[in-house]
Nucleic acid binder design. Structure first.
Lengths: 328, 328
DNA sequence: CAATTTCCTGAAAACGATTCCAGACTGACC
DNA sequence: GGTCAGTCTGGAATCGTTTTCAGGAAATTG
């Protein structure tokens, strides 16, 4: 159906090799033949078959992106940034959503492995060992998590938590709850770690509420539990969970922020649109995606030349209406 | 690096052809060799190179998904459904975000064309002619738009608009504004068509407000214009636009729904979480994605056997708090 | 004008898989 | 035991590229 290099060669009256050269390294062929080839190619609407090229060059110009849940608005933002940056370098994106299932991750990666030059794993849920075991020599960059020996890009959660806790402390809060996300999530552990350190710095009491799914429903599920505990503020694993809390609080007529302040994490679009608008720790989503691609391309260039790189992107507390002075 | 079929053949002490058969058509080889091959394959962690296979079989088991903007929460939902259904048939997904740029569409498709068995175009912005011109014999299924001669899946906007207008009419509204989306969007034209028919049925007056970007900012941009016009209700091209309206109305202390009722379209997650919760026309996003994949696979099976199929998915008005009785 | 270099080109091999074809072996049957 | 059918296997061709290699033409040099 589609034109191949041979069709172009025939039409231009040259060999396939010349067509290849004319298109890939124009300086190596006579201007005249180059022009003939170019015209033939455009007449036939010829575009090289990247899969075939990949077979021989070992470079597919495809990048595999794996993430736990496209329905979480955080990820589309990152993916979009990845897309944009990848396209800039003529890379195409393979997308795989694992549905928060750690067991699905490695098989999915493996199935795609030969069709891509490597992977960007966004918030992978699989175990470190598992990832390492797979990685053979497939280039892998990890986003929102650190797994030696892979290069990674993470948000500076510790600093974000410090800002959040500083803000709450200034408002008079002394007891704060944390609604934890998935146990398998490195971000969750990282945020908790940062939070613990921040609360101890400020000498505040931290109450941890069970692990929930990183969704609105997950937040709603523990809202009553949080409300029943002796805290004046709650920090959620992410914005979706925070919104679940807000929703349930409203349903029960628990005033936010008068009775309890709520802080989210990620700063998804939603956060600014609900009422009360959500105070949250913004993550540089675009930067994470973009940097991930850059690290990935570096990785491809100097094949295992040097030490793994860890980039940390800044976080920024966005104060909106869901936080206020502590009651009592 | 990675094991090839030859490595497996060597380890198992058989030829490459036998390895291929043992794995693809187990009944054609002796149980003993099959077992040897299977063990060798799993020892080496062998997975066939799909690109190489695609070269010869002409089937890549990849599906290309093209959409205008991943940042619009509508699309991730659809993509997720596509993923899930595609995976069920062992298909992987190539994703391309065109950034609402009609001119980017065809080149992007073309670049991917050889690596996929065909495309699912979500709300493509390119012109009909352009799409047809490209399509050569690449299987294409169109979502959220109808373009002969491609199979397509669309939402029943007309019915959705009928429901919305019926609802508003019952609440006493007689003059309603429509905030139009991108001019290049078929959905926009379709919704407008449905809306015109519905308002004329109910003998209501329709005022159309300029075309805006399908984003929150787009909605905010025309909110004042809408407020200044003599309407008691407004229907937005989609939920994001509706949210932009809500936001701006709140900023200006224009009461919703007391002074003006607002209706969205799509029913994205956000819609139920804002205050007032948005009345909107829900679209069967998952069904659209799923059906799209099914149509696509059908298309591959009986190669151009029969007439193009157009599926229409139901819409459902979700009444929330942003609509109420007309004032005056 | 001959010798040497440079430039350009085509043939052939390779990438990793699948499939067709033909041959080897097994067993059944006469 | 010989023939035949049937089962299983390996070799070779193939897909669409890229790349290496070598050779011919043109250009340069003495």
């Amino acid at each position: 159906m589609a034109a191949t290099i041979k069709d172009v060669a025939r039409l231009a009256g040259v060999s396939a090799s010349s067509v290849c050269r004319a298109l890939a390294k124009p300086e190596q062929v006579r201007p005249e033949t180059r022009e003939r080839v170019e015209r033939a190619a455009s007449d036939l609407g010829y575009y090289p078959n990247r899969a075939a090229r990949g077979l021989i060059t070992g470079r597919t110009a495809n990048i595999g992106v794996v993430l736990p849940d496209l329905a979480n608005p955080f990820f589309p933002s990152v993916v979009k940034a990845i897309q944009t940056q990848a396209r800039r370098f003529d890379y195409a994106v393979f997308l795989s959503d694992t549905d928060e299932d750690p067991a699905l991750e490695v098989p999915l990666i493996r199935a795609l492995a030969k069709q891509v030059d490597g992977f960007l794993l966004c918030s992978p849920r699989a175990g470190d060992e598992e990832l390492r075991a797979f990685a053979g020599h497939t280039p892998i960059v990890v986003l929102n998590r650190r797994v030696t020996p892979f290069p990674s890009v993470t948000a500076d959660s510790a600093d974000g938590m410090r800002q959040a806790i500083g803000h709450l402390h200034a408002l008079g809060h002394r007891r704060v709850a944390y609604v934890a996300g998935p146990r398998t999530s490195w971000s969750n552990r990282d945020r908790l770690r940062g939070l613990r350190s921040a609360t101890s710095t400020y000498d505040m009491e931290l109450i941890e509420a069970g692990n929930v799914a990183p969704t609105v429903d997950g937040g709603a599920a523990v809202a009553d539990l949080v409300a029943a505990s002796p805290v004046t503020a709650v920090i959620a694993y992410n914005d979706l969970v925070a919104l679940g809390l807000l929703n349930r609080f409203r349903a029960r007529e628990i005033a936010v922020p008068e009775r309890i302040s709520v802080v989210g994490f990620d700063d998804i679009l939603l956060a600014g649109l609900v009422t009360p608008a959500l105070t949250t720790v913004a993550i540089a989503k675009e930067q994470i995606g973009r940097t991930g691609v850059d690290l990935f391309l570096d990785l491809l260039k100097d094949d295992e030349g040097r030490k793994p790189v860890h980039k940390r992107t800044p976080t920024q507390l966005i104060v909106r209406a869901s936080t206020g002075p502590a009651h009592l």
